[in-house]
Design a protein around this nucleic acid. Structure first.
Lengths: 235, 235
DNA sequence: ATTCGTATTATGTATGACATAATAAAAATA
DNA sequence: TATTTTTATTATGTCATACATAATACGAAT
C-alpha cells in the first residue's frame, strides 16, 4: 500500500469538519434508535453534551438535517422527526436565477423525457375519475390555430394531471418544482424562438389514446405533441 | 379581503426567521452584483456588519447557501461563488435508509420513466465513438439465460453510458445519485421477488436499434428490456 | 367549560474569545 | 537570482455564555 493510499484512507475516515462528523453521527443515531416520524429528539444542549461538542456545532448539523427535510424545529417544542421530502430541498435551490444556462436547458429536457416515458404508469393507474377530469380539462382547450400562444394555465392543468395520474408523488413534486424553470426558459432567450408553432397532436388526441389506445401509442403521440419543444432544442 | 387572507398576506411577507431573510437577501445580492463563479464574497464579519446582524446569523445563512452549492468556503481564503450543483444537495438526502418506502418506490419508477423517455436525445446526440463504447460494453455482456442474476456492474456500465450519451449532465447526475437506491430496493423486500427473470430485449439488441433504428423503436425496445422491473412493480 | 393571563422552556440571536489551516510575507539557503 | 524554509497574518471553525422570543402548559378568572 503506497503512502498516498494510506493518506487517502485516513482522509476518508477523518475528512470533513467536526460538523460533518456530527451530522453523520446524528443521522446514524436517528436510524439506530428507529425514530418514527413525529418523535422528538433530545434538545440541542443535551445533544451537545452527549456528543461532547458545543451547541454551535450541534446547531449547524441540525440545520443541515432540517434542510434535508429530516427534521423540523419549533420553539419550545423542540425538534421532531419528519419524513424527508426528497424534492422539497431542491425547491429552494431551483431558483432559475441562480442556475447556469446549461443546467436550465438540462432541466427543460428532463421534462420532455419524463412525459414521454411515463406512459406505462399512466395506463396502469388511470381511473375512470381521472379520465373524467382530463376530459373536463380538454373541453376547455383553447382553439388550435397554426400560430397561437399556448395557454400556460391550460398546459399546466393538463400535463399536471398526467403527472398526478402516475400516482408517483416524487415525480409530481418534481414537476411542480420545475414549473418556474420552464417559465423562465420560455421567457429567456435560452432556446430558439419558435418559428412555426403547430400542434401535431392535441391534448384531446392524447386523451382519446388514453381511453382506447396503448402505452406505446401514447408515447409516440406525446412525442409528437411535444414536437415544438424538441424542435426548439434540436434545431 | 377576508381576515384570513390578510393574515396570510402578512405571513407571506414577514414569515420566516431572521436567517431566512438574510439568506434571501444574500442571494439577491449575489445576483445584483452579477457575481461570477470564482469571485469571493465579503467576509462574514463584513456581511454581518453590512446587514446589521450577528455573525451567527450570517453563518447560518451562508451554511445554507453552501448546502445549495452556491458557495464554497475555505479557511483564510474566504467564501467563493460556485456553480450551484442541482443534485449535489439531494445526494446527501438520498440516503435510502432515511427515505420512506413510498418514496423509494417512486424513485425506482422514475428511473424506468427516464430511460424510456430519453430515446430522442440519445439518437440526436450519439456519436460514432459512443457507439463504439457501447459495442465494447455489450461484447462483454453476460450470457443471457432464462434465470440469471444479472450482473450489476454490467448493467450500470451500459445504462450509465446511455445517460452519458444524452449529454444531459443533470440527468446523468440524477442517475448516479439514484444508484444506491436501486441497490437498496433490489435487496430489500420492497418489490415482489422476480418469478420469471427473462430478458426480452438484450443490451445488444438495443445497440442494434441505436445503429439502424428509430427513437420510436428504441423506446419500445427499452420498454421490453425493462419488462422485468415493470413486472415487479405492477404485479 | 371556556377564556385569559402567566410561567416555563427550547430554540433563535448576539457577543466575544480562541483554534486552526491556508495563504502571504519574510527570511534563509543554494 | 531562484528556491526553499520559516514566520506572520487572516478568515473561517469552534466554543462558551447570555439574553430574546415564541410556543406551550398550567393555573386563575370569568
Amino acid at each position: 500500500m503506497s503512502v498516498d493510499t494510506i493518506i487517502e484512507n485516513l482522509r476518508s475516515v477523518d475528512t470533513g469538519s467536526l460538523v460533518d462528523r456530527v451530522e453523520s453521527r446524528l443521522i446514524e443515531l436517528l436510524q439506530e434508535k428507529k425514530m418514527q416520524v413525529g418523535d422528538s429528539i433530545p434538545k440541542e444542549i443535551e445533544l451537545a453534551d452527549a456528543l461532547g461538542v458545543s451547541r454551535t456545532v450541534i446547531r449547524e448539523a441540525l440545520l443541515r438535517l432540517r434542510m434535508m427535510g429530516l427534521i423540523e424545529t419549533k420553539k419550545k417544542k423542540g425538534t421532531v422527526i419528519t419524513s424527508p421530502d426528497l424534492f422539497g430541498i431542491m425547491g429552494k435551490t431551483l431558483n432559475p436565477h441562480v442556475l447556469d444556462q446549461d443546467t436550465l436547458r438540462d432541466i427543460f429536457e428532463i421534462r420532455l423525457v419524463l412525459e414521454i416515458g411515463m406512459a406505462d404508469f399512466i395506463f396502469q393507474r388511470i381511473t375512470p375519475d381521472d379520465l373524467k377530469d382530463l376530459k373536463k380539462i380538454v373541453s376547455h382547450e383553447p382553439k388550435v390555430t397554426d400560430r397561437h400562444l399556448f395557454n400556460i394555465e391550460h398546459e399546466i392543468a393538463f400535463h399536471g394531471k398526467l403527472y398526478e395520474i402516475t400516482r408517483n408523488k416524487a415525480m409530481k413534486k418534481f414537476q411542480k418544482m420545475l414549473l418556474p424553470v420552464f417559465d423562465y426558459v420560455h421567457k429567456s432567450g435560452l432556446l430558439k424562438k419558435q418559428t412555426h408553432l403547430r400542434t401535431f397532436v392535441s391534448h384531446k388526441g392524447l386523451v382519446e389514446i388514453l381511453e382506447k389506445g396503448t402505452p406505446e401509442q401514447f408515447r409516440n403521440a406525446m412525442r409528437m405533441h411535444l414536437e415544438n419543444h424538441f424542435d426548439r432544442i434540436f434545431s
